[in-house]
Simulated assay, not measured.
Amino acid sequence: MYVVRRVAVSDMHQCRGILAEDVVGKDGALLLPRGSVYPWNGDAAAVSENLLRQGVDTLLVREELSVSVEELEHLLRQGEIPIARVDPELAMKTVRQIGEVFERMYETGGAEEDLTALTATGRLLARELSRTPQILFSLAAVRDADEYTYVHSLNVALLTGFLASRLFPDQPDLVEAATTGGLLHDLGKARVPLEILNKPAKLDDREFSVMRNHALWGEELARRGGVTDSLILSVIRSHHERWQGGGYPDRLQGSEIPVLGRVGAVADVFDALTSKRVYKEPSAKRQALNLLVDHAGDHFDPHIVRTLLAAIGLFPPGSVVELSDGRVGIVLASAGRDLMRPRVLVSEASWHDMAGMQIATSVLDLSGRADLRVVSILGDLGKIPLS
């Protein structure tokens, strides 16, 4: 990822970057071509002196962008532009709870009180979603292979509940069921041998046959743990069904698939694609969204994919984008109905100079700026690590 900024020649020694434009002298001669890398080959001081003699006192430079979600939040607080996120303490508590439930499931098969506490947490998460319009800033990053299933369960709960709130805005009970179902959707993986669950490579046919059982095992474990809500159970059982058939465990298709199972399927795949695994790096949110769009109508309910697209836009929150005026910013939200013109946070200084500084920032609503547009995506901030 890179940021473009204009730098005084006298300050070039503080930079590490490449020229974003040709540098031309007073007589029209090319002094430095676009793409030249600083520090220059040879005597950097002599090159700088020559530039100043030629009347060149600033250079347009592309520098590597280094910005974390935490640094973004620092900037937003300075500019009084808060990101509404699910309570981090609740998120951490949820991941610990899921881990404890899975461990007891492995050891003893689990107990009813385990799932009673977890379903109560699902209700808390559902209430948190009502104040969290940009859900992508609340998704947690996976730090190591051992915690993947637990963090993934949290993220799928948040995404499933978020989508349900968009699809059924006047049905809070359904949003609660969707969130709780997302939290429990992989419960059956507690019965999958660890050597299959954590295998750092593609599963063979025998291993995949075992893995496919987790949807049925999860429903069984949930019922044994006292879960009777058919909506919650439908997420657990049906999140691997496919819109045109061929999924599992029941090979349902279209509207035969329970609606929250269809919602869970979209949430499950989006988070899996954007998560780091032993065998792959995370995909950018835009790439994951493109895959969902490509498979809308075969793997996924197209209406649910359209709902996700409308909620996060073509440039998902957290995307680092280059604007048509050369500035680089971070997408905060989709702006109304125009999916191509989001709200973007821009800074008046190099992003990686921000730590501990008071830096001027502003939010541009591109839906009201006919003179500005996004010309490219430079990168993705990714997810927030659980501390």
Rank of each mutant, 00 (worst) to 15 (best):
80 E>S: 12
307 T>G: 00
162 F>P: 02
78 Q>L: 15
3 V>C: 10
77 R>S: 14
270 F>C: 01
319 S>C: 02
118 L>I: 07
331 V>F: 07
107 E>N: 04
200 P>N: 10
199 K>E: 04
345 L>A: 14
195 E>W: 14
335 A>L: 05
91 A>E: 01
335 A>Q: 13
69 V>M: 14
229 D>H: 08
77 R>Q: 15
275 S>V: 03
195 E>L: 03
112 E>S: 11
131 R>L: 11
134 Q>T: 07
293 V>A: 08
50 N>S: 11
237 R>V: 08
364 L>M: 14
317 P>E: 11
284 A>Y: 11
307 T>D: 00
79 G>I: 14
369 R>D: 03
19 L>H: 01
312 I>G: 13
29 A>P: 00
146 D>P: 00
305 V>I: 08
94 T>P: 01
285 K>T: 05
192 V>R: 08
305 V>T: 02
342 P>A: 13
119 T>D: 07
39 P>V: 14
177 A>C: 07
21 E>C: 08
89 E>D: 09
30 L>I: 06
323 L>R: 10
41 N>F: 12
147 E>A: 05
229 D>C: 07
86 V>M: 13
109 G>Q: 05
340 M>N: 11
66 S>M: 13
27 D>M: 04
298 D>M: 06
66 S>A: 15
371 D>C: 08
272 A>V: 06
322 E>A: 10
288 A>F: 00
353 D>V: 07
142 V>A: 09
325 D>S: 12
281 E>Y: 02
290 N>E: 14
208 F>I: 11
2 Y>S: 13
183 L>K: 04
89 E>Q: 04
303 H>D: 03
294 D>H: 04
230 S>P: 00
47 V>N: 07
42 G>I: 01
38 Y>G: 15
219 E>L: 15
246 G>C: 08
324 S>I: 08
291 L>I: 07
189 K>F: 07
18 I>A: 12
290 N>K: 11
29 A>L: 02
168 F>A: 12
219 E>H: 11
204 D>I: 05
377 I>P: 01
314 L>G: 15
86 V>E: 12
361 T>F: 04
124 L>V: 02
341 R>W: 05
131 R>N: 10
193 P>F: 13
273 L>R: 00
235 V>Q: 10
169 P>I: 02
372 L>F: 13
54 Q>Y: 03
347 S>G: 13
267 A>K: 01
130 S>Y: 03
124 L>H: 06
232 I>L: 14
76 L>R: 15
366 L>G: 11
58 T>E: 07
245 G>W: 09
34 R>Y: 08
241 E>W: 10
147 E>R: 08
386 L>F: 05
325 D>N: 15
373 R>Y: 14
92 M>E: 04
24 V>L: 10
32 L>Y: 01
97 Q>S: 12
190 A>M: 02
149 T>P: 10
167 L>I: 09
70 E>F: 07
335 A>D: 15
336 G>W: 09
289 L>G: 02
